Simulated scan of single mutants.
Amino acid sequence: MNHVIAKLRLRKGSESSKLKKVLSNVTLYTLPNDLANNIVYDPGTILDEGEWFSISEFSQKPFFLQFLADYTDSVAYEQLEVNQISNIDYICTCENANVFYFQRITKTQLLEKKVITIGDQFRYNANSKNIVVNDTADAIYVKEDDTLYFKKLSAITGIFKGIDQLFREATTAETETFLAKDFIRLENNFSANDVKQANRKRIALAMATLNNFDDEQKNTVFDTVKEYCPQLVADDNTFKIETENDLTLLLYGIDQRFYTTPDGKEKRIANSVIRLGAAV
């Protein structure tokens, strides 16, 4: 049996008390035909049309929602009241206690307008309240496989609190620490205040990458950056960073995105990366 439940934003009360029943015996979504085309989530990967990101063993993750483990078709929730729709955080369609479709509800999906309803006959409603249902769910959790599927991480951070740690931004302190590394020389008054969101995310990834490298791996990566970006090499053999673009190139190098075409004629930067073994 299918049920649609809503998660409310409430200041007090247990998590279960924030879940309300909206509808039963309706089908808002069906499993996409292309769900098998999924790639293990990696912030360095850009999806092609018809692809999904996936996170396996989702129930073991710190941002897993407990109600997914506890849910059964017999679970009873209080009915959502009309005056509560402005407090909806997200809706979840529960299909046979196995497949859960999530949609974040933003202000643009809550419509309170005068409308003319088209059905068997035209009807005028001076105080219509509607929840707009997207064609595709923001996230799909298949309990049987314990896997979450999604297309945009930013679309589900409000549903699964903490999942943004998969692609978090470096803090100002972390950015300053990175820029103070002995292989970097700042010039032209460049500082952490000049680092925008995209590079803060890359810095968070780069710091994790470097922490997993031994000295030989670091030297290999830095030598590659020097080969592909000689303009970054300072007189003391460090990398001089004067602009955001300089920093971007260095971070791409640490992420090992530089490569040369097989015929050796063209040097390139990979805009998206899929690690072998990451595709399902």
Rank of each mutant, 00 (worst) to 15 (best):
I91F: 03
N189Y: 08
Q256F: 03
N130Y: 04
T171S: 15
I118T: 09
R185M: 09
L28N: 06
G277V: 08
T117V: 13
I85T: 09
D48G: 07
G277N: 07
G44Y: 05
E169V: 09
R268D: 07
A270I: 05
Y101Q: 06
T175W: 01
A206E: 09
T157S: 10
G119E: 12
A204L: 04
S272D: 10
A76E: 15
Y41N: 05
R9W: 09
K240D: 12
D236N: 15
A180G: 00
F190H: 00
S191G: 06
R268M: 15
S272W: 05
L65N: 08
S191D: 08
S272K: 05
D194Q: 08
D236S: 13
E57C: 02
N83W: 10
A180V: 00
D182K: 03
V75W: 05
N2P: 04
D214H: 07
C94I: 07
F58R: 03
T209P: 01
V280N: 15
K107T: 13
K143W: 03
K107W: 10
P62G: 08
V221W: 03
N212G: 13
F160I: 04
K152R: 12
Y77V: 10
K143D: 07
A208Q: 12
Q231D: 14
T157W: 02
M207I: 14
K151Y: 06
K240G: 11
R268P: 00
T209A: 10
A6V: 02
K21S: 12
G158E: 12
L247I: 06
C229K: 09
L8Q: 04
D164H: 07
Q103T: 11
Y71T: 07
T260C: 06
A69T: 13
R185Y: 05
D48Q: 11
R257I: 08
A126R: 07
D215S: 13
N211Q: 08
E176A: 10
L276C: 07
V142K: 04
K129Y: 01
D246V: 01
S56H: 10
P62I: 12
K113A: 13
G264K: 01
S74P: 02
Y29K: 01
V4M: 05
C94L: 13
F160V: 04
T224Y: 03
I140T: 01
Y149E: 10
A270G: 06
E81Q: 15
L251Q: 01
E216S: 14
N96L: 11
D135Y: 04
T209V: 11
K61C: 04
G44N: 14
F160Q: 03
D182N: 08
N98K: 09
D235Y: 08
D263W: 01
N188H: 05
P62T: 12
K113N: 14
N193G: 10
A173R: 11
K226W: 07
G13F: 09
S24R: 10
P32S: 06
S24E: 15
G13D: 12
Q197C: 05
L47P: 00
A208D: 14
F160R: 01
N2Y: 06
I5W: 03
T243G: 02
L250T: 02
A76S: 15
F58N: 03
F100S: 05
P262M: 11
I203P: 00
G277T: 08
A69F: 11
V99T: 15
D70I: 10
R104H: 12
P262S: 14
E81L: 14
K7M: 15
K151D: 06
I159L: 06
D236C: 06
K21T: 10
E78P: 02
S16C: 08
A36M: 08
C229P: 00
A126G: 04
D194T: 05
Y259A: 13
F102V: 08
